[in-house]
Amino acid sequence: MLKLEHIYKWVSSGGRRIFLLNDLNLEVREGEFLSIMGPSGSGKSTLLNVIAMLDDFQEGKYYFEEEAIHELKVKKRTEIFNQNIGFIFQAYHLLDDLTVYENIETPLLYKKVKSSERKALVADILDRFNIVGKKDLFPHQLSGGQQQLVGIARALIIKPKLILADEPTGNLNSKQSDEIMQLFHDLNKEGVTIIQATHSESNVTYGSRTIHLLDGSIQKS
C-alpha cells in the first residue's frame, strides 16, 4: 500500500543537523495492522505525520499506492490524504464548538457530500459506535473514552483505506483502551489498514506487526 525508501528528515539547530528520521525504510501492505513502538523522541509521531503527508522530509522516496508522493505538489498530496487517510489523535482534537453529530459530519461537508447522504452516513456510524444518544452533546460533556470514540468515528466517516493513530489510548484508562483497541481490531478485520504509534505493550498485541524506532531509524522488524 505504501512504501518509504531512505527517508531522511532533519532540523538544523546551531549549525548542526538533528535527524528526526534517519535513513528510514518501511513497507506497509494493505490489510496490515502495524504498531510503531519506541521511546519518546524516537520519531514515532514524525513518521506518522510523514505518512499522512502532513509533514515534509528532506530526502528519500515515498510511494502511496504507486503514486510518488515526493514528486507531488502540496495540493495533490492533500487531496490524496483527504481521500484515503483518517487521522486519530492522542488528545482527540474534537472541535469544541460542534456537537458529536456535527464533528462526525464535518469531513463530509468538506468533501461536499450531499445532505441526505451525509445524514445516512452519520446515522450509520453513530449507530455502529453506539453513541446515538450522545449525538447532540458537546465534546466537553463526554468522557475521554467517549471523545476518542467520536474521534475514531469522525476518522472513519470518509471510509479511509488507511487509519493513522498517534497514541490513540494515551489519555485513556486500561478498560477504555481495550475497548478502543478491540474496535481497531474489528476494523482491521473489515479490511482497513491501520498504523498506530504506541507505548503500550498491550496495544501491540492487537496488531499484526510491530516495528521499533530509535533515533529515527527502525531497529528490527
Binding site: 487521522f87 482534537h93 474534537l94 472541535l95 469531513p107 468538506y110
Partner: peptide, 13 residues
C-alpha cells in the same frame, strides 16, 4: 489555530 489544524486534517482547504 488548533481549530484550523483539526479542520485541515479533516479535509478543509
Amino acid at each position: 489555530t488548533k481549530d484550523v489544524g483539526i479542520n485541515k486534517t479533516l479535509g478543509a482547504s
